[in-house]
Structures are given as C-alpha cells and as structure tokens.
C-alpha cells in the first residue's frame, strides 16, 4: 500500500507492506540514525518525532503514520549539534547507539516541560535505555544544556 509521509520536511509517497513498522520504512528511506535495539518497545533507540512528539518507531505501524510528519536526527542536524555538544563534552556519547534517540526525546521534553527538575528530566527520558554510560553524564549534560539555553 502507499502512504504519504513527510520525512524531515520532505513529502514522500512510499510503498509499504501493511504490517511494516515505521522503523523499517525510515531505515529503508535513508534515515539510518534510527536504530533497532529491541523488538518490544523497550529501549528507545528507535525514537523519532511524529508531529513533534517522541514515539517509538519500532512500535508504530507505518500505515498509521500516513499523512503525518516524521523527524529524525538527519533532519535537525543543527539542533542535534547544539544538544550533543553538551553530551560529547560530558563524555556521554560512548558507543553512541542510543544517542540519536535520546537527543530526539530531549527535543520532545524541551517543548513540553519548562525548567524541568533533575527528577523530571530522568522521568521524561526514562524510555531511552543506555547500557554504556550509567546515565549520570547524560543528566549532567542535559541540565547544563538547558541551563545555558536560558
């Protein structure tokens, strides 16, 4: 079946299987920053923004996304660079596999929460698992980023 998908501000008509998940469709369409980490909606590596809100692309039917707009890290490189500078400075991009997803969820958080506390940050981002860092460097980096943005 065919769907209309706006990927990173580009309108596309894409041929998909009815049972295909958004993750596969995005990877096939060049968004290789979107990672496959589990098969169960548990890790957050596949996070993308759907109409600006963070979702798990592995758990979202591509057909459901018909008519919607998807943002991946490829589409917001400048913004990603701004946030990631803090992550890189804190040494919290280790293997980096979880990072594109984390950055997108952070963007979602920026939109929704004003001046989040550390607990609120950790709660909002809790769906993004990271096995390398122990998370505390993420928190330091994101707090600093939000602080400096003010």
């Amino acid at each position: 079946m065919k769907i209309n998908l706006k990927i990173n501000n580009q309108d596309k008509i894409i041929d998909i299987r009815p049972d295909e998940m958004l993750l596969e469709v995005l990877r096939k369409n060049g968004c290789l920053s979107v990672k496959h980490g589990c098969d169960t909606g548990s890790c957050g590596a596949c996070t993308v923004l759907l109409d600006g809100k963070p979702i798990l692309s592995c758990s979202y039917f591509a057909a459901k996304a018909d008519g919607h707009s998807v943002t991946t890290v490829e589409g917001v490189q400048n913004k990603v660079e701004k946030i990631s500078k803090y992550l890189v400075d804190e040494g919290s991009v280790q293997c980096g596999f979880c990072v594109p997803g984390l950055v997108l969820t952070t963007m979602g958080m920026e939109k929704e929460l004003n001046n989040p506390t550390e607990d609120e940050i950790n709660h909002y981002l809790s769906g993004n698992l990271c096995r390398c860092t122990g998370y505390v460097s993420h928190t330091r980096a994101i707090k600093k980023y939000l602080e400096d943005k003010k």
Binding site: G44, T105, H123, N128
Partner: peptide
C-alpha cells in the same frame, strides 16, 4: 500510568 515504559510508548 506514569511509569509505563517511557514517554515515547505512552505517546503511542
């Protein structure tokens, strides 16, 4: 519901 997996899943 606030502890169900993460914001991204709860958005779905």
């Amino acid at each position: 519901i606030k502890n169900i997996v993460g914001v991204q899943l709860r958005n779905i």
